[in-house]
Amino acid sequence: MSKNEQSSSGYPIYRHGPRTKEFQLASGDAEAMARIEEHIEAHIGKIEGVYHEIISDLVHVDIFIVAPTPERNYYTLVTCGMSNLPMTVPEGAENFKYAELMICLPPTWQMTEDAFQDENHYWPVRCLKQLARFPHEYDTWLFAEHTIPNGDPAEPYAHNTKLSGMMLTVPSVVDNIESFFTLTFSEDKEVHFFSLLPLYKEEMELKINRGAEALYPKLEKAGINEILNPTRKNVCKKTFWIF
């Protein structure tokens, strides 16, 4: 991993090479799973299903699914297992060693196992699983406003979208954000829940070059949050008029 680069906004840029860790078989933590399940149902809604991993590397990552309701007309997917191991955090961030991730999908999203054979339907789930394992693979961490491109250079996740990266954010679609964001397991372990916000290449470039404070107003003005719209407006794409 190289961390010698720095963006024009002053933030470090990390480039991760091929993984050097060998496969390490991991199993789930039933007690932690029960605590996270209870936390999700208290703040978001009843869990309708779980995508279980059969064979897990480093951490056992399952995904809880909360189905759409009239009040929350979208699927909410939340990882469970990323927080089984601490992340490698920098000095001063010791309270953020443990995290889980979530993303929201429109109510029309195809959620069957057959549909997930098609990357056009599976890529948000793949992102959750890959990013939940990512900090443990590379001895790093994930936190709010971190952006992770889909490759270097970034490529669209699937044929049905031009979105090509993710930014972590504090969840905005939960009623009591402060209560949901932190789940205290013990004096030494607080699990923080971050949303994945898919971005276009140009949006990632703005965030890297000028910071998240330059990107957020554009996203807010366009009404964009963590509820995925694979063909949404690109808030940094310039429109050229030909006369």
Score class of each variant (00 low, 15 high):
Thr184Asp: 07
Asn120Phe: 04
Pro198Thr: 03
Ser9Lys: 05
Thr108Gly: 06
Lys189His: 02
Thr69Pro: 03
Thr76Arg: 11
Ile103Gly: 04
His159Gln: 11
Asp188Phe: 08
Gln24Trp: 01
Phe243Asn: 12
Ile208His: 08
Val170Tyr: 09
Leu219Ser: 01
Thr239Lys: 11
Leu206Trp: 03
Leu197Ala: 10
Leu131His: 06
Ile227Val: 15
Pro230Leu: 03
Pro171Tyr: 07
Ile47Ala: 06
Arg72Asn: 15
Glu178His: 06
Met82Glu: 04
Ile13Asp: 05
Leu199Ala: 04
Lys46Ser: 08
Gln130Trp: 01
Arg133Ile: 13
Glu41Thr: 10
Gln117Arg: 15
Phe181Asn: 05
Lys46Cys: 09
Met167Thr: 12
Thr169Pro: 00
Phe185Pro: 01
Met111Arg: 13
Gln24Gly: 05
Tyr14His: 13
Ile36Gly: 02
Asn150Ala: 01
Asn84Ile: 01
Ser179Trp: 02
Pro198Trp: 00
Thr147Val: 14
Tyr200Trp: 02
Gly211Pro: 01
Pro68Cys: 09
Ala214Ile: 07
Pro68Ile: 00
Lys233Ala: 15
Leu85Ser: 13
Pro217Met: 04
Lys46Met: 10
Ala132Ser: 15
Ser9Asp: 08
Asn209Leu: 06
Glu94Cys: 08
Glu100His: 02
Ile63Val: 15
Gly151Asp: 02
Gln6Gly: 05
His52Asp: 11
Gln24Thr: 10
Ala32Met: 13
Ala26Glu: 02
Tyr138Pro: 03
Tyr75Thr: 10
Phe185Met: 14
Met33Ser: 13
Ser9Met: 09
His16Cys: 15
Ile148Glu: 06
Asp62Gln: 14
Gly81Leu: 09
Trp123Lys: 03
Ala26Met: 06
Ser164Trp: 00
Val173Leu: 15
His159Pro: 00
Arg126Ile: 06
Glu100Gln: 07
Ile208Asp: 10
Trp123Glu: 07
Trp123Tyr: 15
His60Ala: 14
Pro217Val: 00
Tyr157Ser: 03
Asn73Trp: 08
Trp241Gln: 11
Thr88Phe: 08
Arg19Cys: 09
Ala30Pro: 14
Asp139Pro: 02
Ile103Lys: 00
Cys80Gln: 15
Thr20His: 12
Gly165Tyr: 02
Thr182Glu: 11
Glu22Met: 09
His60Trp: 11
Ala34Gln: 14
Val125Lys: 14
Val170Arg: 08
Ser83Val: 05
Met167Glu: 03
Pro90Met: 08
Thr69Leu: 03
Leu77Phe: 05
Arg15Asn: 12
Trp123Thr: 11
